[in-house]
Design a protein around this nucleic acid. Sequence first.
RNA 1: CGGGGUGUAGCGUAGUGGCUAGCGCACCUGCUUUGGGAGCAGGGGAUCGCAGGUUCGAGUCCUGUCACCCCGACCA
Length: 587
Amino acid sequence: MPIRLSTLFFRSLREDPVEADVNSHKLLLRASYIRRAAPGIYSWLPLGLMVLDKIETIVREEMANAGAQEVHFPALLPKEPYEETGRWEEYGDNIFRLQDRKKADYLLAPTHEEVFTLLVKDLYSSYKDLPLQLYQIQTKYRDEARPRAGLLRGREFIMKDAYSFDVDDAGLEISYQSQRDAYERVFQRLGLEYVICAADAGAMGGSKSEEFLAPSEIGEDTFVRSQAGFAANVEAVRFTPSEKIDSSNIPAAEVHDSPNTPTIATLVDFANKNVSRHPDGEFTAADTLKNVVLKLVNPDGKTRLVVVGLPGDRDVDQKRAEAWFGVDVEQAEAEDFEKHPGLVKGYIGPTKNGKQFLGLEAESKIEYLLDPRVAEGSHWVTGANEDQKHVFNLVYGRDFQADGIADIANIMAGDPAPDGSGELELARGIEIGHVFQLGRKYAEALGLKVLDENGKLVTVTMGSYGIGVTRIMAVLAEENQDEKGLIWPESVSPADVHVLAAGKDEKVFEVAEKLTADLEASGKTVLIDDRPKLSPGVKFADAELIGIPKILIIGKGLADGEVEIWDRATNNRQSVGVESAVEQLLS
RNA sequence: CGGGGUGUAGCGUAGUGGCUAGCGCACCUGCUUUGGGAGCAGGGGAUCGCAGGUUCGAGUCCUGUCACCCCGACCA
């Protein structure tokens, strides 16, 4: 049966609702796909559900192709499994928590690793049962601090989450690849541009993880890529330490009085006015070694300080720092400096009076880590650990040492890719999928073991694979639109053809109905604008807003036996005979 | 949690302490109109976010509070 605009639960808005500021959100609201129910929580109207269903169908088909079986868990779960893995605490305020009448704790699941693991544990106990892939398409709940951009970051959202279970790492690798391949097929069928980015796998485990990012200005993730194909989330980029360079012609380090130079800019200015450079040339921020004091905050609240030396033209990228250290990272505050009087703010350096200072300073026990760009043998202008003094020609390896590296500096466009594949460019993206080798973390915590062929218990190794279904709809809307409205790809459009009866003649409506029936009989789905007594302008505008890619206009040309096929994307209109319209639309 | 902003009908908005809170869209009735968001006439719909205060009188001023939006922090 066709979708009839005369009775469809639909009302287009002529103006943008103020609550929306990104185009996809505005258009989905204006065209009656969704309505806001609460911050980050949306109600689905008929048109919205149709698109959602199309996306889910594609996901289901490709999950089946990958050999995954569909199950369905409750969204409402008891807290116990999440306590066992520590996530009841770990997730903090991000979980929606509630209690039943007996005061037992429940949560609205933000993710389902635990219950999938327990379900497999419940049913299976032999290596012969593996490998296994399960998935569900389920509503997830996360009490995000700041929901954004309509469906893009909601507090309630639909996710396809799949999990693989294998006896060994080789099996996991195969399962991972099969899901990864399925993701590529899903996104290709949806007509979505995507970049597969190496992702930060988290501090524990060090397992493999990749994100599928849809490049977009409104994206929340920053990634880097090179022409030759390297791509990674900025958090996951790891640079190799620079090769040792010759320092035999660098003069001995010398300390200069450098009054009022607590920042890199003032220091560079001072150096250019007062110090001759060897060899000749201007000092720049890149010649200075900036030493940043960071406070690492463990989940239990304990903190420790580290000092990181990095070229003065770079800053610490907090997200990269947290990925590197695996804990929260904060800037050191005034009270931290008070506790460590050796750290002279604005004049921190790795040496004092010509001797190694940081790290070797027994009482401070502060680790000194270096950016991988700092090569052994390179010479620097840096703090002398005395107020108003800097040291010049300080050579790494000759004059100071480090306790290790910290690859946490911000990445700049033009930086070389770590794999030597050329210069990096920075771009924004929306995470639409994530494939992740979990390893044995959850299996271990929840005791998922099977007997191997020798009758020995082995812990199962797992992978988890997510696709943001509702988010994909937002991305598709964002990527497929113009100033008039949405332009859905055929694969997810609410219908194949939008039949538009423009006019008042009964004949127009008769022919529109006839062509609708013919199209449906030929296997096409149709939305028909059969609203009577509505001026054509309104119908044209609504057709553009709704965004079905093919529009069939029955109107003024009918007197000559002609109708028009209007391509929403190209705006091309072509008159065809009534009899050949269906055939044209089928091709 | 920090910074900024906004709350008036379903949506978009106007409203110097002073009459019955105004307009456009949408909605209802009638007539006319029908290829780019029609016209005319008539109509329904608002406890002006909430609470308290000042005042003869508060949408408007004051205090408090709540909600939402944006930026940041945060976010397998």
